[in-house]
């Protein structure tokens, strides 16, 4: 309880310092806005619904893209883990591709799909799917052999074995991959939206720049951070914690 209070006090102090710097008028207002100005821009943005539309458009894209990469990523990860040959051929190149910043897929997406939604979807999927499939494959390989032995003596085979034992056994690792995949997907979506796609939060950010409205720029950044943190910590973080606890794993 005390820690929450202390933390709030610290945030308040930081905001105070920001306001103080603003009052000192070291920089012109169009380069260094006040926190109140940003708050005002945030409120106007929500009041005239531009932010709401931006959030909705971006969320729709991320849900679709992230959902697709979850499906493809897990399916591909299971294949990697169960086919040794595939893993030997593709394991190393996949690790390499994961280090490619996902926005680097954009030119390819643009050439393949043109200047449209499908190009941005492609970038989001490529950004998240590699982490998810590598984590899935890793999770399957690290399932305690005793679970597999127990399952096979009880007659688990084929698809039932996958659904009943292998997927749940790999779940802690899959969720970790989902967290990583989420941060890649969210970043690449914002980058993609800034570069060309209309509407969406990334686009609002660029619009702020074009209008020379630094308060809007920072307000949109706040919204982007907020969404990223809420999904990472509250949604995926809680899920990860619950799973690790139930699976009897210590929390990282």
């Amino acid at each position: 309880m005390i820690r929450h209070v202390e933390r709030l006090a610290l945030y308040a102090a930081l905001l105070g310092l920001w306001e103080l710097l603003f009052r000192l008028e070291l920089w012109p207002e169009y380069l260094f806005p006040s926190p109140l100005g940003v708050l005002e821009s945030l409120l106007t943005g929500f009041a005239n619904k531009t932010f709401l539309v931006g959030i909705l458009v971006s969320m729709k894209r991320i849900l679709l893209g992230y959902g697709l990469s979850l499906v493809f990523g897990v399916a591909f990860g299971l294949m990697l883990a169960s086919m040794k040959l595939l893993d030997e051929f593709l394991g190393a190149p996949l690790l390499g591709l994961r280090t490619l910043p996902s926005i680097c897929w954009l030119p390819l997406g643009l050439l393949w799909f043109g200047l449209n939604e499908r190009a941005i979807l492609f970038v989001v999927v490529m950004g998240a799917a590699f982490s998810i499939s590598l984590a899935t494959a890793d999770g399957v390989r690290n399932i305690s052999p005793i679970y597999l032995k127990a399952a096979s003596t009880m007659g688990a085979r084929g698809i039932r074995k996958y659904i009943g034992v292998i997927l749940p056994g790999a779940l802690p690792s899959i969720v970790t991959g989902m967290k990583l995949g989420w941060s890649f997907a969210w970043r690449s979506l914002m980058a993609g939206e800034m570069l060309f796609v209309s509407l969406g939060l990334g686009h609002l950010l660029m619009m702020g720049r074009e209008l020379n409205d630094i308060r809007q720029v920072i307000a949109v950044m706040v919204v982007i951070v907020a969404i990223g943190v809420v999904v990472d910590r509250l949604v995926l973080g809680t899920l990860e914690e619950r799973i690790r606890e139930r699976w009897g794993l210590e929390n990282p």
Binding site: I146, A150, M154, A156, G164
Partner: peptide
Amino acid sequence: GPDRILIFQQDALFPWLNVINNVEFGLKM
């Protein structure tokens, strides 16, 4: 095969299932 069931030293129950679902596992298979 399910005519010979092995019981291990420890930790062979499935942590993602509750007790009754663990017991039901073999029947479902």
